[in-house]
Design a protein around this nucleic acid. Structure first.
Length: 428
RNA sequence: GGCGCUUUCGUCUAACGGCUAGGACACUUGGUUCUCAUCCAAGAAAUAUGGGUUCGAUUCCCGUAAGCGUCACCA
């Protein structure tokens, strides 16, 4: 089993691409096979400098390590794609074309499938596929587990080699997949419409054709459309910046488009490898439901040891920090939630007097007295006939400036007697 | 518009053609609790639609509708 993840270096890694990479990785590793990373940088115009490194770094953060690495631009230098295209011409399966390239985005749909140059027998230019007439091309999709077919009368003469000598995806990817002995091509659903072109290319290339599977698209919960860079938050690095743990993100994404029979939900990467199975692939497009991701993240945060949570929060392992973190571990869903909740431990809050209820000064005075004498504050409550909830709320607001906080007695212990009393006195 | 894919609770999904269609998130309620959260318990919530095959259809077949994708010398 050999699979590949083949991104083009046009920016940061997309959440959907991460999922494709994960599935390809799991597919291979479940069978102790190889996972290949291939950078498809054949369009110089679209390339973004640095994105190859960025993609590699991100994959590593998720533990998706590859066994082999290729850059198509490097392979291009050997002339392999040009040679392959020329071979297809001489075999009668492709032809030279000198038409001006068109831009579909501007010109809209085109119903012209056959290229005017296909019978001209030109000797130079771009190279296009000579699609045969009236033929059925088909394959069995290993994700959908069904046969999908097209009549070649609906397929256009796709470009294989551009006039700058670089191959298009249709040529480069198929050539590489054959040459790298890829056994399973796993890619996005957006490739499904161009699959008949690839089927023909594989046929003309000779050799064994890999199995092909098309993953569902991840849809935006809001729009119901494919997740897009413009509308949605899609870059993996942004999720990490927001405070999501890679393990949680990976686990969430695993279950968007794949599910085990027993509906198990929590998986480490090792367990994913162990239990992954092609039968679990879904047919319908899932929606990116952020609340479920938040839940996964909370689960993983709670599983962390105090030390590793401190590390992820970039905090020193002092006794105080450890105490704070253990108080907050159950109360945060994302790492980024920590700062606002823990702020009062480090800085004196600006207290809005309007937050207080009645009798708050009495509460605070008694509290100061109690704390000074190291007394159990519950006793103070009883002695003064305070309402327990009201008393602690006054105390909470005075110490933290907020109504929702970690348990106040523990917080005071961490904060220290002196600091607590200072804060209380300033409000009396 | 052509071509293709898809359709089970709001969301992710489970169910050899056969129990009352199950679980998780979210939601509601209750318990624990000094607030919030965690944790625990309970509840509401779905087979797009019309035919057909069958003793029996969420499951198989056909139609319809809706959704998504794609139609470049981009990947």
């Amino acid at each position: 089993m050999r699979t590949r993840f083949a991104p083009s270096p046009t920016g940061f890694l997309h959440i959907g691409s991460l999922r494709t990479a994960l599935y390809a990785y799991l597919l291979a590793k479940n069978k102790k096979g190889d996972f290949i990373l291939r950078i498809e940088d054949t369009d110089q115009k679209r390339e973004v400098v640095g994105s190859t490194d960025a993609i590699c770094d991100t994959l590593k953060k998720f533990g998706l390590v590859w066994d082999e690495f290729f850059m198509q631009s490097e392979r291009h230098k050997s002339g392999i794609y040009k040679k392959t295209a020329e071979k297809l011409v001489s075999d009668g399966h492709a032809f030279y074309c000198q038409c001006k390239p068109k831009n579909a985005k501007i010109e809209g749909f085109s119903n012209i499938l056959r290229d005017p140059c296909r019978d001209l027998e030109l000797a130079s230019g771009a190279i296009k596929l000579k699609v045969p007439d009236g033929q059925i091309v088909k394959y069995k999709d290993f994700v959908h587990k069904k046969e999908i077919s097209w009549n070649t009368d609906t397929i256009y003469d796709a470009t294989l080699l551009k006039s700058d000598g670089f191959p298009t995806y249709h040529l480069a990817a198929m050539t590489d997949d054959v040459e790298m002995r890829i056994t399973h091509i796993l890619r996005g659903h957006d490739w499904l419409p161009s699959t008949p072109v690839h089927l023909l290319v594989f046929e003309y290339l000779g050799g064994t054709r890999p199995e092909i599977g098309h993953l569902t698209d991840i849809l935006s919960t809001e729009t119901g459309k494919k997740l897009s860079k413009r509308r949605d938050s899609v870059f993996v690095e942004n999720f990490i910046k927001e405070g999501y743990l890679p393990q949680a993100l990976l686990n969430f994404i695993l279950l968007l488009g794949w599910a085990p029979k027993d509906n198990r939900e929590l998986y480490s990467l090792e367990e994913m490898v162990k239990y992954f199975d092609v039968n679990g692939f879904q047919d319908a497009n899932p929606r990116f439901f952020r609340e479920k991701l938040d839940w996964f993240n909370g689960q993983y945060i709670r599983k962390l040891s105090i030390d590793s949570l401190l590390e992820k929060l970039k905090l020193d392992k002092t006794i105080k920090n450890k105490a704070i973190v253990s108080l907050l571990q159950d109360r945060i869903e994302k790492l980024s939630d920590f700062d606002s909740l823990a702020k009062f431990f480090f800085d004196r809050p600006k207290v809005d007097i309007k937050l207080f209820g009645e009798n708050y000064k009495e509460h605070l005075e008694s509290a100061v007295d109690g704390i000074k004498n190291d007394r159990d504050l519950m006793e103070v409550v009883k002695e003064n006939n305070f309402k327990t909830g009201d008393f602690f709320m006054s105390l909470r607001i005075a110490v933290t400036g907020m109504k929702f906080t970690p348990p106040i007695n523990e917080s005071i212990t961490i904060l220290g007697k002196e600091e607590t009393i200072t804060r209380l006195k300033s409000l009396i």
